[in-house]
């Protein structure tokens, strides 16, 4: 008879901070919450390779340097390539006996959505294909926020950015968000998951699991950007939670091909509740919101089919 696994709570997360406070990230930055808890989950023996992006720029400037881990900033397009090199070197040093064979050194690459979905996709694909023992984490704030809110492959349908302006003809981004998880899973990785800063224990357990698994692993993190999304800095977690409750974002993991939704939503809220808090969606008409609702419904249906039962329920007003 199997014992039921203990459900982790916030008390299971270590107190020790490995991401120091006093950095230059915005008030209410979703990525700040993510980095704080990701580093807690990683523990001390980890090397972080970071692509150019908001997190890189805002966490490194002395004396507001936030990283307690060994940390390497590399160019925009090649966090995954840099991490591949670090991981291969560790392998070589273990083989030569420079570092003990049983010492577990975790290598983690972190990139934003621009550095992952767009310019870094080639390096990411190469890393996954070569089966490097690296965890790649993308914090997805759905546009190039560091350079001033230009669209990226991760920008959602109808969102305003400076390069997808809103007017009579253009209504913000007119293409749906790129399915990065689909791309990653097509590489047959042993583990890939989505996380959300409103669900910290879920995030913690997933990062822990990902670094324990041998081979390339991937985490796609939802990361609200207060200036880019035009949201109240006090509402970062509210918006994050609403993303899950409306089905815009689904927390799931895929372990060796087995698909599991980790945050079931029996009763969904209408997508309007998520959209109305954000200035980047302020131009939307009722019809446009209905269109987005339809797209979310379709995605929810797809996910339910993958799971084989209704884990994300219907919209209940």
């Amino acid at each position: 008879m199997s014992t039921k696994p203990k459900i982790p709570t916030i008390w299971d997360i270590p107190r020790e901070e490995l991401f120091a406070p006093g950095h230059r990230m915005c008030q209410g930055c979703g990525a700040a919450i993510l980095m704080r808890h990701i580093t807690k989950a990683l523990g001390k023996d980890a090397i972080i390779v970071e692509a150019t992006g908001c997190v890189e720029v805002t966490t490194t400037v002395y004396p507001q340097t936030a990283w307690k881990h060994p940390w390497l900033h590399i160019a925009f397009e090649n966090a995954a390539a840099g991490a591949s090199g670090v991981e291969a070197a560790i392998k070589a040093m273990k083989r030569k006996g420079v570092i003990p064979k049983d010492k577990k050194v975790k290598v983690v690459a972190i990139g934003g959505d621009g550095g992952t979905f767009d310019i870094g996709l080639q390096a990411l694909s190469g890393m996954l294909e070569r089966r490097h023992n690296v965890l790649y984490i993308v914090y997805d704030n759905e546009a190039y926020m560091n350079t001033g809110i230009q669209r990226s492959g991760a920008t959602p349908y109808k969102a305003w950015t400076t390069t997808t302006p809103v007017g009579k003809v253009w209504r913000g981004e007119w293409r749906p968000k790129k399915d990065i998880m689909g791309i990653v899973l097509a590489h047959r990785v042993p583990y890939a998951a989505t996380v959300n800063p409103a669900y910290i224990t879920d995030l913690y357990m997933k990062v822990r699991k990902a670094v324990e698994i041998e081979g390339p692993t991937f985490i796609h993190a939802f990361s609200p950007c207060t200036p880019g999304w035009r949201i109240d800095p006090a509402l970062t977690v509210t918006v994050s939670r609403l993303a899950v409750q409306t089905g815009v974002w689904i927390n799931y993991e895929v372990e060796n091909g087995e698909f599991r939704v980790t945050t079931p939503v029996p009763k969904r809220k209408p997508v309007k509740e998520y959209l109305r808090l954000q200035g980047r969606f302020r131009h939307l008409t009722e019809e446009e919101i209905a269109e987005i609702q339809r797209m979310v419904d379709e995605e929810v249906e797809r996910i339910n089919k993958l799971v084989g039962k209704t884990v994300i329920g219907p919209v209940v007003e």
Partner: peptide, 19 residues
């Protein structure tokens, strides 16, 4: 184009004006 500091505002301006 592709966003990069300090060039992005040229791109953003054209994104609105050129079409």
């Amino acid at each position: 184009g592709y966003p990069i500091t300090p060039t992005s505002d040229l791109f953003e301006y054209l994104a609105v004006e050129l079409p």
